[in-house]
Design a protein around this nucleic acid. Structure first.
Lengths: 192, 192, 192, 192
DNA sequence: CATGAATGAGCTTTCATTCAT
DNA sequence: TATGAATGAAAGCTCATTCAT
């Protein structure tokens, strides 16, 4: 039991180390040796928990994606009105990006580089289903524009990634006040 | 002056090869040897035109950024109304992303990974000034929301990057019809 | 602690290989690949034992310098007369140069090229202290000329390097008989 | 005539550049490109004047060796007594090392590294013949010790190289006063 | 399970030399 | 003669991965 525990801790340390290095140095400067050093294990140990580097990255991606959707749909159920439901989800996502910067940065990087293989990316997509369902309901109710969910996502959710990046680069502060404005923009871009 | 001249075609071939490889394989799998092979020159030749790999990437970034802003402000001048002016710029950017997919993908990747050094990134930022000026005018005229230009950018321009990525992955078609819807969303998110 | 230990034999093999190659080909034609091959290890293995090529050369230099001074002051203590003490040291050095040709050649090369960085060279200098002390005593006793130790060294010790080089090039034989003559010359050049 | 002149100047510039770089960086860090740059010619031009790098080094060695012996036997003829003759030659050599530091350093480096090929080295040796003749006369006259000329050279001439090196490294000053002491040591080591 | 040592393949970059003018 | 461009080969070094314990 204590042993099992220890194992999980090492795996977690490795995932955290990878997250940190990929975020700060980029995927091209996050070698296994540095990951091992940061996680305080031997390079060989990595291969006990992960098949190879690609597998390590993939697993990290999926775990973070899961953590993301777990937060995104917190306190949400489909008994709310569409707008209320959207506001809950949107705020959850915004706070995820605000508070879990490292995870968010990693996801943003994953969304735009060929470092994640197709299979993992497709698994990752499934996590958003409840939001897609909400939008579909909204369209039936005549509250949400009758346009592709890709467009809805692009204009209401995707912008949060930009705000997080800017905040990270100290270009822009991204606080509760801004969030109210931001939500207005998001909602205006998708509401009928 | 009967000397074989450093020919610009080789430089261009190298930049194109780099663009292609970084887009398809990622920065971490675009070695100088492959770049040279694709450009049909010797690896050593790269170092006649570029100081090192980072310099090659930086120069590529700056050239593409310049090409982007050249397109973005085509046919634009500040005699239009704010909405008309914005529409021109927005459409220019949208078509750039539609027609110059490789360049767009590269820029998107650059915006979210630590591939580009800070200095080059800051040079790249200057290109958007006319759009910022337009927004400022719009705010004075009471046409544009009085919020940070980062928010305006995030909700009206940045989403185009997502649409381009999705199209690239064959997930979503992104044609003239969609563009009309997209512009509506963009404008709704920033107009007062 | 059931770990394959970094074995000192590999380090030694690498130092020996370097010594041999630098002596025979010069520093400029002793690439890491050849060193690795001669030591029968992979090129990458070198970097487990040494930080880089300069470090390898520096460490080799310091080890040989230590071995030199270990021999130089063998059987010597300061209870002898100055002349006897000098004779012991001189003979030790002469025999080191006679019997440890590879080490001697390397040191000679190091003394006249910018292969070794300043720091290591300064560390190397400390090894001669007992000889300098002996000369100082000799000067107080009126046995040794009251001139700079650099001059004393130049005329009594440094010539042995030339004899070793000549012998190495088969130009001159350098045997016990010659050594008696050589010592006479050395002593005559520094005695009062 | 003017053209011929220009040619010789370029050749000289190349030899000087090589001399300077080999002295300061060592043979291993004196690439053709740097030599060309320092001499203010194109790398390709080097190959008009020299067959290849080895030939460049060899020719430099032989020219410096010639310049050395030209100085060494200045004002010397065999009508002097042996001691007077030796003093003239010794002082000439000492002043060469004092005043022509770059040339001296280069020769010292050549004497101890395998950068000069055997053939050139043997050509270089011939230059000392008059000194060897003088010593032979001195031995017949019973003024010089009846020992190998290698020993005579090692103890009377070779030490000057050490003094030059030390002065170069700012460890020791090597002026006219020291030279008188030095000559005493040199003469004591070879006189009968 | 866990390790530090070890490695072949491959990286970025430099080199001596040749080419084309 | 003189050149800057061009290059294949090789340099020093790092990497993801495996070995031996």
């Amino acid at each position: 039991m204590a042993i099992r525990q220890k194992c999980i801790e090492k795996r977690t340390a490795l995932l955290n180390a990878t997250l940190h290095l990929v975020n700060n140095n980029g995927f091209h400067d996050a070698p296994m040796s540095k990951i091992a050093k940061l996680a305080e294990v031997s390079p060989a140990t990595i291969y006990i928990y992960f098949e190879n580097k690609q597998d390590l990255i993939n697993q990290l991606y999926l775990e973070i994606k899961a953590s993301f959707s777990n937060d995104a749909f917190h306190n949400y159920d489909d008994t709310n009105t569409v707008k209320e439901g959207f506001k809950i989800i949107w705020n959850n996502i915004a706070h995820f990006k605000l508070n879990q910067v490292e995870k968010s940065m990693f996801l943003t990087q994953c969304d735009t580089t060929p470092m994640i293989d197709k299979e993992s990316r497709e698994k990752g997509l499934l996590h958003l289903q409840p939001l897609l369902d909400l939008w579909e309901r909204g369209q039936k109710e005549g509250v949400i524009k009758p346009i592709s969910p890709y467009l809805l996502y692009a204009f209401s959710i995707y912008p949060l990634g930009f705000l997080m990046t800017m905040q990270q680069r100290k270009s822009c502060e991204y606080n509760e006040v801004n969030l109210v404005d931001a939500f207005q923009s998001a909602w205006n871009s998708i509401k009928l």
